[in-house]
Computed example of a mutant assay.
Amino acid sequence: MVAQGCDAEAAARGGDIPHDHLFKVTGLSSNNLQKLAQDTAPVVSDFEAAIAATQYGRFNILLLACSLPAFWSAVSVTSSVSYIFTRAKCDMNLSLLDMGTVTAITYAGMIMSAMIWGFLSDTLGRRYIMVWGFLGAGVLEVAAALSQSFAMLLVTRFFCGFLFNGPFAVLLSYIAELHRTEHRARALLLTSMFYTLANTTLPLLAWAFLTHPEWDVELFGGQIGEF
């Protein structure tokens, strides 16, 4: 009891502990101990303050520039089938129901993958999902363009929507998170302009390619295809 009382009294009189006693116990004087405590104190800051400290620079500009092809892909995944029906309905004998099914199957894949991508983006990381998700969606877009039957077209369009939904949603969150509050609204407004620009380029590409009756492709001096 006497020892506890002495300890409590010593704690209450922390400033009265002699300097020589502190030096014997810790090897440091009281001034050095206070300086050490100040130097090792953790600096706590929230996410917004950390992003604001990075300011706005070349990384943000490159991030927005790299997002432009993603918006072109978004328009291609959701709207390209409406341009190929003029040819596909003759080549594959598609009915009105078949064309409506092909259009809707892409959105069905997006809806079915929404919860899965939300879990994977928080588990694996946003950058990992964007890189491999966009790559997989691009490969399936090429496979859909090479479809020779209605079943193949239906399956590839479904998985295009399935794979594309997650990376594109993650991209929007990624852009918003890496811009501080002052620039966040402007960045998202700029991405909306990208989407509008992509909507104007797709009809131009369709006009450039689909209005020509035949395409002859030659590689290494030999004809490899006729479209």
Rank of each mutant, 00 (worst) to 15 (best):
S30F: 02
N31C: 00
N32G: 04
N32M: 06
N32L: 04
N32P: 00
Q34H: 09
K35M: 03
A37L: 07
A37M: 06
A37N: 12
Q38V: 10
Q38G: 13
Q38W: 00
Q38M: 08
D39A: 14
T40G: 05
T40S: 12
P42R: 04
V43I: 06
V43W: 00
V44N: 10
V44T: 15
S45P: 00
S45W: 00
S45I: 07
D46Y: 06
D46C: 08
D46T: 15
F47M: 05
F47C: 01
E48W: 01
E48R: 12
E48A: 14
A49K: 14
A50M: 10
I51H: 03
A52Y: 00
A52T: 13
A52N: 11
T54M: 08
T54D: 09
T54A: 09
T54P: 01
Y56L: 05
G57M: 05
R58S: 09
R58G: 07
R58D: 00
F59K: 13
F59G: 12
N60K: 02
N60H: 14
N60W: 00
I61F: 00
I61T: 08
I61V: 10
L62V: 05
L62C: 08
L64D: 11
L64N: 11
L64H: 07
L64P: 08
L64S: 11
S67I: 01
S67V: 03
L68E: 03
L68D: 04
L68P: 02
L68T: 09
A70P: 05
A70Y: 01
S73P: 00
A74T: 04
A74R: 02
A74I: 00
A74H: 06
A74L: 05
V75H: 08
V75F: 03
V75T: 14
V75A: 08
S76M: 11
V77Y: 07
T78L: 07
T78C: 02
T78S: 13
S79F: 04
S79M: 10
S80N: 14
V81D: 03
S82E: 01
Y83N: 13
I84G: 07
I84K: 02
F85P: 04
T86A: 11
R87C: 00
A88L: 10
K89T: 14
C90Q: 13
C90F: 05
C90N: 14
C90H: 14
D91F: 02
D91P: 04
D91N: 14
D91Y: 06
M92D: 02
N93E: 11
L94E: 05
L94S: 06
L94Q: 07
L94I: 06
S95V: 05
L96Q: 12
L97E: 04
L97N: 12
L97Y: 04
D98N: 15
D98F: 03
D98I: 09
D98L: 04
G100T: 11
T101G: 08
T101Y: 02
T101L: 10
T101M: 08
V102R: 01
V102S: 02
T103S: 14
T103I: 07
A104E: 02
I105W: 03
I105E: 05
G109Y: 08
I111T: 13
I111P: 02
M112D: 06
S113A: 15
A114Y: 03
A114M: 05
A114G: 06
A114L: 06
M115P: 12
W117C: 11
W117K: 05
